[in-house]
Deep mutational scan, measured.
Amino acid sequence: EWCEALHSFTAETSDDLSFKRGDRIQILERLDSDWCRGRLQDREGIFPAVFVRPCP
């Protein structure tokens, strides 16, 4: 499952995944309604679900 970043997100901890608006992120797991775990290029981490939308 893939999503597109609606806003940029800067990691606040070593577990977070930083990304820029427009990045396509592979969703690996939905942790709960607020957080997802994903992969961007060679990095993995968690990020807020409200920062992304599903890719068509």
Rank of each mutant, 00 (worst) to 15 (best):
W2V: 08
W2G: 03
W2L: 04
W2R: 08
C3R: 05
C3A: 07
C3Y: 12
C3W: 03
C3G: 09
E4L: 09
E4C: 07
E4S: 04
E4M: 07
E4W: 03
A5D: 04
A5N: 04
A5S: 05
A5L: 01
A5M: 06
A5H: 05
L6R: 06
L6N: 07
L6W: 07
L6V: 08
H7A: 15
H7D: 12
H7T: 14
H7K: 14
H7M: 13
H7Q: 15
H7Y: 13
S8Y: 04
S8V: 04
S8Q: 08
S8H: 09
F9E: 03
F9S: 05
F9K: 12
F9T: 04
F9R: 15
F9A: 05
F9W: 14
F9D: 05
F9H: 13
T10C: 11
T10Y: 13
T10W: 04
T10A: 12
T10D: 15
T10H: 12
T10F: 09
T10K: 13
T10I: 09
T10P: 06
T10S: 12
A11W: 02
A11F: 00
A11T: 06
A11N: 04
E12K: 15
E12T: 14
E12W: 07
E12V: 13
E12R: 15
T13Q: 11
T13W: 03
T13S: 14
T13E: 09
T13Y: 08
T13K: 15
T13P: 01
S14K: 14
S14R: 12
S14D: 13
S14A: 14
S14M: 13
S14W: 07
S14T: 13
D15S: 13
D15M: 12
D15I: 10
D15F: 10
D15H: 11
D15L: 10
D15A: 14
D15T: 11
D16V: 13
D16Y: 14
L17K: 04
L17V: 01
L17Q: 00
L17F: 11
L17W: 01
L17A: 04
S18C: 06
S18G: 09
S18D: 10
S18A: 11
S18Q: 07
S18L: 00
F19Q: 07
F19Y: 02
F19P: 03
F19V: 03
F19D: 03
F19L: 03
F19T: 02
F19A: 04
F19R: 01
K20E: 13
K20M: 09
K20F: 10
K20Q: 14
K20V: 08
G22L: 01
G22W: 01
G22N: 00
G22T: 00
G22E: 01
G22D: 02
G22F: 02
D23N: 05
D23Q: 09
D23R: 02
D23K: 03
D23F: 00
D23I: 02
R24E: 06
R24N: 06
R24V: 12
R24M: 09
R24D: 00
I25T: 01
I25W: 00
I25F: 04
Q26T: 05
Q26L: 12
Q26C: 07
Q26V: 05
Q26Y: 06
Q26K: 03
Q26G: 02
Q26D: 02
I27G: 01
I27S: 02
I27R: 03
I27N: 02
I27V: 13
I27D: 03
L28P: 08
L28D: 01
L28G: 00
L28E: 02
L28F: 13
L28V: 13
E29C: 10
E29G: 10
E29L: 03
E29T: 04
E29S: 07
E29A: 10
R30N: 13
R30C: 10
R30Q: 15
R30W: 14
R30T: 08
R30M: 06
R30K: 12
L31N: 06
L31R: 07
L31Y: 09
L31T: 06
L31V: 11
L31C: 09
L31Q: 07
D32Y: 02
D32W: 02
D32P: 10
D32K: 08
D32S: 10
D32T: 10
D32Q: 09
S33M: 10
S33R: 09
S33K: 13
S33W: 10
S33P: 11
D34L: 08
D34C: 11
D34R: 12
D34Y: 11
W35R: 15
W35Y: 15
W35A: 07
W35I: 15
W35E: 05
W35T: 14
W35P: 00
W35V: 12
W35G: 01
W35D: 04
C36R: 04
C36D: 01
C36P: 00
R37K: 10
R37W: 06
R37L: 10
R37T: 02
R37A: 03
G38Q: 01
G38F: 00
G38P: 00
G38T: 00
G38I: 00
R39W: 01
R39G: 01
R39D: 02
R39V: 07
R39C: 09
L40P: 00
L40M: 05
L40S: 07
L40K: 09
L40Y: 06
L40N: 13
Q41H: 13
Q41Y: 12
Q41N: 15
Q41K: 09
Q41S: 12
D42T: 08
D42L: 05
D42I: 00
D42R: 09
D42G: 15
D42N: 11
D42A: 08
D42P: 01
R43L: 06
R43N: 03
R43A: 11
R43T: 08
R43S: 08
R43E: 10
R43Y: 09
R43G: 05
E44L: 05
E44Y: 06
E44V: 12
E44P: 03
E44D: 06
E44N: 05
E44C: 11
G45Q: 01
G45K: 01
G45N: 06
G45P: 00
G45F: 07
I46N: 13
I46C: 11
I46D: 09
I46V: 11
I46R: 15
I46E: 06
I46Q: 08
F47S: 03
F47N: 09
F47E: 01
F47T: 01
F47D: 03
P48L: 01
P48Y: 06
P48E: 01
P48G: 01
P48V: 05
A49G: 10
A49P: 00
A49C: 12
A49D: 06
A49L: 11
A49W: 12
A49E: 07
A49M: 13
A49F: 13
V50G: 15
V50W: 09
V50S: 14
V50D: 12
V50H: 15
V50L: 09
V50F: 05
F51S: 13
F51P: 00
F51A: 13
F51H: 12
F51Q: 06
F51Y: 15
F51E: 05
V52N: 05
V52C: 08
V52P: 01
V52H: 01
V52Y: 04
R53V: 09
R53P: 03
R53N: 07
R53W: 04
R53C: 08
R53Q: 14
R53S: 08
P54N: 12
P54E: 12
P54G: 08
P54I: 12
P54R: 08
P54T: 10
P54Q: 08
P54L: 12
C55H: 09
C55D: 11
C55Y: 10
C55E: 12
C55K: 07
C55V: 14
C55F: 13
C55W: 10
P56M: 14
P56L: 15
P56C: 15
